[in-house]
Design a protein around this nucleic acid. Structure first.
Lengths: 135, 135
DNA sequence: CTGTATCCTCTAAGATACTG
DNA sequence: CAGTATCTTAGAGGATACAG
């Protein structure tokens, strides 16, 4: 059995892609770039909150997305879920120590963004204007 | 004209979502979480590289994705593109100062990931095992 | 109140083929 | 060598209805 150059390239790409999935930094990026993750974590920074309170504070998130975000945070060991079996039910969410430590990284991102996204904004404007006039 | 509670909620969500798009931190996350952005930037950390060299170093990226990643980095003012009109054509890519500064944030992410993704990995395993046995 | 189950849409990412 | 143009697909995100 022999392979064409094309097949070899495909194989290399597939292998590289698999390796990427295992890269810790890649996984972290995928975890925190999901739309509501950082917002939820920021809200929980000052202490535990009920599900309904989170919903009130992050009105953009649908109920489904909020729950699924919280589930993935819980699964990743970044948030703990406390269920109180009263009627009606009550659930509180709280950051774990690991979650708090991740919050540090998120603040780093936020800081850079606040300081530099203006420049990025400008660059985008310039780039777009150049294409517009040039075609 | 009056509105139902449902319509009001919808409006609030839409408005909140629009605000989110404008949030610098959100934009930053969207910019760097695109699949090949960080890899390209890391490769360019030590100096300029040709298109073909980048392609060789990041075999997982298709030609299309590499070009489109480089375009968006250029648009954001993070990378400069130097075109040399020889035959065949030659293009070199290099980080801008802004790009280098962003690299610092990326290293922060990477560091946290290297130190802590093991714990996340463990938490995931525990969570999944618990569901498996409990159902 | 909290959470699940469906269905739907939109787009990032990829495969492929072509041009200067 | 570098880049563009199409077509396809998988999955994130969302709307809605229902359940414990």
């Amino acid at each position: 059995m022999t392979f064409t150059a094309h097949q070899k390239r495909q194989a290399a790409q597939a292998q590289y892609a698999d390796g990427l999935e295992l890269c810790p930094a890649r996984q972290l990026l995928e975890a925190i770039s999901s739309k509501w993750v950082t917002l939820v974590m920021l809200e929980l920074a000052d202490g535990e909150l009920r599900h309904s309170e989170l919903r009130r504070r992050i009105p953009g998130a649908s109920q489904k997305m909020l729950t699924s975000t919280l589930r993935s945070l819980e699964r990743d060991g970044l948030v703990t879920r406390l269920l109180t079996l009263s009627v009606p039910v009550r659930t509180d969410y709280e950051l774990t120590p690991l979650g708090h430590s991740l919050l540090g990284v998120i603040h780093g991102l936020k800081e850079w963004a606040d300081e530099n996204m203006g420049q990025v904004e400008e660059a985008r404007g310039g780039y777009d204007r150049a294409r517009e006039s040039a075609g």
